[in-house]
């Protein structure tokens, strides 16, 4: 019950954060020099058309009123037309979001497995060469921007070794599966197209890895630090004294409490993965939301920019709530203290 209470409060609060974000976005969209009505109809349209559009877009009203209209439309899922694709922004987002989601989910999976795996390895073999190699790798991962990784991966694994394709989600000759979820890996499995599934997976590896490198490095560092810290705790000494095998101590009693900070950071990392996807999708020509967002930004397409940022804000908020739930599951202290305060 208390967990539910906590969740409800968290969701209501997040709603206000998103409302605040919508104000920030609206302000950003309005600080741009130039007349939005003129940009909507193009430079050659006659003035009376522009005036008519101005009236239609409520641009003659005071800013708070304009915000009200904009928000009312946005809540109904209407962000207007995209200047670039000439389609409703909502339709664009529906089309491009699954591609980004698939990429980010795979990247998140890679960073969770890679980060926790390497971190555990590093802590288990602390101060040996294994530890040193992992630490060196973590450092390199933290200091290298994702787009640099992306370029090196393309150069080495796609061009030189030809292990992976360079761009896109599927090869040209591969039949695309019928769209159910929009995630090609899932859809191809649903349709039983195993070849398509493999091809999609091959296309995912490099961009997902480029996205995940920073997060893998960061998680490995944090897992190692917490584990090394917990290793010197009394309860571990007690378990060892009781004769529990070293493997069981690490796997059963050390890992779980040590994952709490890692999971918290993982949530933040997945959210920021969406933001670095803006560059990585561009490099791999990945038809996702981030590339769409980046193209709208480069074309000053305000309707799509606002929608993309708001959608990503909502994703960020949802991810954080999920992380809170997982952390509460991992940490009995949080559950118990919530129950006690009830």
């Amino acid at each position: 019950m208390s967990m539910l209470n906590f969740l409800v409060r968290r969701i209501i609060y997040s709603f206000f954060v998103l409302l605040g974000l919508s104000i920030v976005i609206f302000i950003i969209a309005r600080i741009m020099p130039g007349d939005p009505a003129r940009m909507a109809v193009g430079a050659r349209a006659p003035q009376w058309v522009v005036d008519q559009i101005r009236e239609q877009m409520h641009l003659n009203d005071p800013l708070p009123v304009q915000y009200g209209y904009w928000l009312a439309d946005a809540v109904h899922g209407d962000f207007g037309l995209s200047l670039v694709t000439q389609r409703p922004v909502t339709a664009d987002i529906r089309e491009f979001f699954p591609a980004s989601l698939e990429l980010v989910l795979v990247a998140g999976l890679l960073s969770a497995l890679g980060g926790i795996g390497l971190g555990t390895l590093s802590a288990r073999y602390k101060d040996t060469w294994v530890d040193n190699v992992v630490r060196l790798f973590s450092y390199a991962g933290v200091v290298t921007p994702s787009f640099v990784f992306a370029i090196f991966f393309v150069l080495i694994f796609a061009w030189e070794l030809k292990w992976f394709p360079v761009i896109g989600r599927l090869s040209e000759q591969t039949p695309a599966p019928p769209v159910v979820t929009g995630l090609i890996t899932v859809d191809s499995l649903l349709a039983g197209q195993f070849g398509t599934f493999l091809d999609a997976l091959k296309h995912l590896v490099l961009p997902a890895l480029a996205l995940a490198m920073g997060a893998i490095a960061q998680e490995a560092r944090i897992t190692r630090a917490t584990m090394a810290d917990n290793l010197s705790k009394d309860y571990i000494a007690a378990e060892r004294a009781l004769g529990i095998s070293e493997r069981e101590v690490t796997g059963r009693f050390l890992l779980k409490p040590s994952l709490i900070p890692t999971v918290s950071i993982l949530g933040l990392d997945i959210a920021s993965t969406f933001s670095i996807a803006f560059l990585v999708e561009l490099i791999f020509n990945w038809p996702g939301l981030a590339r769409y967002g980046m193209q709208s930004m480069l074309n000053k397409d305000l309707n799509s920019i606002s929608a993309v940022i708001l959608v990503l804000g909502a994703v960020f908020v949802v991810v954080n709530i999920i992380v809170d739930i997982i952390v509460a599951q991992l940490d009995p202290r949080i559950r118990l203290s919530a129950a006690r305060s009830e």
């Binding site: 920021s272 933001s275 930004m297 804000g313």
Partner: peptide
Amino acid sequence: DIFLAVPPLILALAVASV
């Protein structure tokens, strides 16, 4: 909190783009 609700890179890109 509102500014921290979105990764800084996205908002920075958006502001820089306008």
